[in-house]
């Protein structure tokens, strides 16, 4: 049946939650494109037949065309939804994705992410270096009490002071500097 392979791609994406990124399925994408090529060629032949002689092939042409449109929709939805997830991951993990997440990207997606990073950095530089990825809501306090969840090592603050982030140690750090580490799961915020 037509469109089955293309739906496999969509199922890949729905099986994981919207936050996770499954491996880019280049083999299935290739198979879908191959199916579309065959559909297109057969349709071309039948269209030529119907122009010259009878119109009995029109139903076949319409059916194949519907299958082509469906495959196209699945392929595009696959790519667009992946890009949206990659973009969200960029905001969560920072500009460098961890190794095995980055490994699920295909070559063009890596390229896209690099371009996205560059544009985002250029835009933020235009705002006097404001880091948009950090503050999503107005802050309630300047410093946060945090517990360290892993041995991170030395962390240098903007004023030059160094803090040793050891597992289970507790610190009072300036909000702007530790927010990214909280998002990345290095620190845990202890609310009052």
């Amino acid at each position: 049946m037509f469109g089955v392979k293309a739906f496999e791609l969509i199922r890949d994406l729905t099986l994981t939650g919207p936050e996770a990124l499954p491996l880019y399925n280049s083999e299935t994408v290739r198979q879908v494109l191959e199916e579309m090529r065959v559909l297109y060629e057969r349709n071309q032949r039948d269209v030529n037949n119907s122009v010259n002689e009878d119109s009995s092939y029109l139903g076949t042409v319409h059916l194949r065309h519907a299958a082509l449109e469906r495959n196209k929709r699945c392929l595009l939805a696959y790519l667009v939804n992946r890009l949206q997830r990659i973009r969200d991951l960029r905001w969560d993990f920072g500009s460098v994705l961890p190794g095995d997440v980055a490994g699920s990207l295909c070559e063009q997606e890596v390229q896209w992410l690099q371009n996205y990073n560059r544009h985002l950095a250029t835009y933020m530089r235009g705002l006097d270096g404001l880091d948009l990825t950090q503050e999503h809501c107005p802050p309630k306090s300047l410093c946060l009490e945090v517990r360290c969840l892993q041995d991170y090592g030395l962390f240098e603050l903007e004023d030059g002071e160094q803090v040793l982030l050891k597992k289970d140690s507790i610190h009072l750090l300036p909000r702007s500097e530790c927010l990214m580490l909280i998002r990345q799961g290095v620190l845990e915020h202890i609310p009052h």
Partner: peptide, 20 residues
């Protein structure tokens, strides 16, 4: 009445760490 909201790790990150 808790006014200070808690800063949390991003969902994608905590899921990733759980898996890892």
């Amino acid at each position: 009445g808790k006014l200070t909201s808690r800063e949390l790790a991003a969902v994608s990150v905590s899921n990733y760490l759980k898996r890892k």
